[in-house]
């Protein structure tokens, strides 16, 4: 068995909205092992980004309450002081952000931005840092690294900038990478390039990766294990192959059915009834997905939905998956069938 790198235990991240705290991440437990890519997937408002920010300590400290544990290298990151946390961030954990157009400081040259984490975490001379930086640039697929070193962010294309952002995350050989929608802001062909680059780097470096995304295509291409989130909770955890071959939770199944590229020709897409509740209006009792599959009788849901191991290493929340079906009188009745089965 591989060693766990990061253990998130019962994490609850609550935001202060007009004086009251509402949990955006509501009791989430996830373990990431060495050399494993764990994808966290869900639609906006499911809490996946709040989870990433909590792990990195990047939330707004005044308006956020954190409970639970984020165990990394023998310490709970949630209880570390700012200066202790700064010894971990950028060194053992690197982060890749969504929008490469805004993630870099517009007034500093690329070289310095990649060297910056080395300033704090590695004892290197200026020339050693530069050498390492040039090597990193080559490793993320930038060929004219000498020139890019001296350039400012605005002089680079979006794809190049995202490569730089990855180089920054890798600067101090982290054991864990947190990638928050790393390809969402990119063009299709650039997205493919960045996905391939990340796969390649992961193969070489054997880091654990938490990949946060809304795109099931990206999940299928990159992940080893998948965590599906809905309304602040984990609803399904499975190996990537199992998830796409045998999705269990009604939400996962609905999601897969609403992707156009899964459907041949002009079939109707599946539409999930209703909308994702906001964290203030969320009914936290019972199955949170129940209001959106109203044709499933109430007794099929659990009162306090638990995670069940429905198949080896395949976990699903609530018992409603057992009897869930797509009603025939509704559009999108045609169930998504895994292409490889």
């Amino acid at each position: 068995m591989k060693n766990p790198v990061l253990e998130i235990k019962d994490l609850r991240t609550s935001f202060n909205i007009k004086g009251d705290y509402y949990a955006a991440v509501d009791g989430v437990s996830i373990t990431v092992h060495e050399n494993e890519v764990v994808a966290i997937v869900g639609e906006s408002g499911c809490g996946k980004s709040a989870l990433a920010l909590s792990v990195m300590g990047l939330h707004d400290r005044k308006a956020t309450k954190l409970e639970g544990q984020v165990n990394f290298a023998g310490q709970n990151l949630l209880t570390l002081t700012r200066s202790r946390l700064d010894k971990v961030r950028g060194k053992d954990i690197g982060m890749i952000f969504q929008d490469p157009m805004t993630a870099l400081n517009p007034l500093a040259i690329i070289g310095r931005q990649i060297e910056e984490p080395m300033d704090y975490h590695m004892k290197l001379s200026a020339s050693e840092k530069k050498k390492r930086t040039l090597e990193l640039l080559r490793r993320v697929g930038i060929k004219n690294e000498q020139r890019v070193y001296e350039q400012y962010p605005h002089e680079l294309s979006g794809g190049m900038r995202q490569r730089v952002v990855i180089a920054i995350a890798l600067a101090c050989d982290p054991v864990l990478l947190l990638a928050d929608e790393p390809t969402t802001a990119l063009d299709v062909t650039i997205q493919a390039q960045i996905m391939d680059l990340m796969k390649e780097l992961q193969n070489q470096m054997k880091t654990g990766i938490i990949l946060i995304t809304h795109d099931l295509g990206v999940v299928a291409e990159m992940a080893d294990r998948v965590v599906v989130m809905y309304a602040g909770e984990v609803v399904e955890i499975a190996d990537v192959k199992d998830l796409f071959e045998n999705p269990l939770h009604p939400y996962t199944r609905s999601l897969l059915n609403s992707i156009p590229s899964n459907m041949e020709g002009k079939e109707k897409l599946h539409v999930i009834d209703g909308i994702v509740p906001s964290i203030q209006n969320l009914d936290r009792k019972g199955c949170r997905f129940a209001p959106r599959i109203a044709w499933i009788p109430e007794e099929d849901h659990e009162e306090i939905p638990e995670m069940h191991e429905a198949a080896p290493n395949h976990f699903v929340r609530c018992s409603c998956y057992k009897t869930f079906y797509f009603p025939e009188d509704r559009v999108g009745e045609k169930e998504y069938v895994a292409t490889n089965s």
Binding site: A192, D215, L216, A220, V240, K241, S261, N262
Partner: peptide
């Protein structure tokens, strides 16, 4: 190139796609 860039929905074919 554009079509090959569409993410592969079958996890087992991801390296083929690459």
């Amino acid at each position: 190139r554009l079509i090959a860039a569409i993410p592969e929905m079958n996890p087992e074919k991801r390296f083929e796609k690459m």
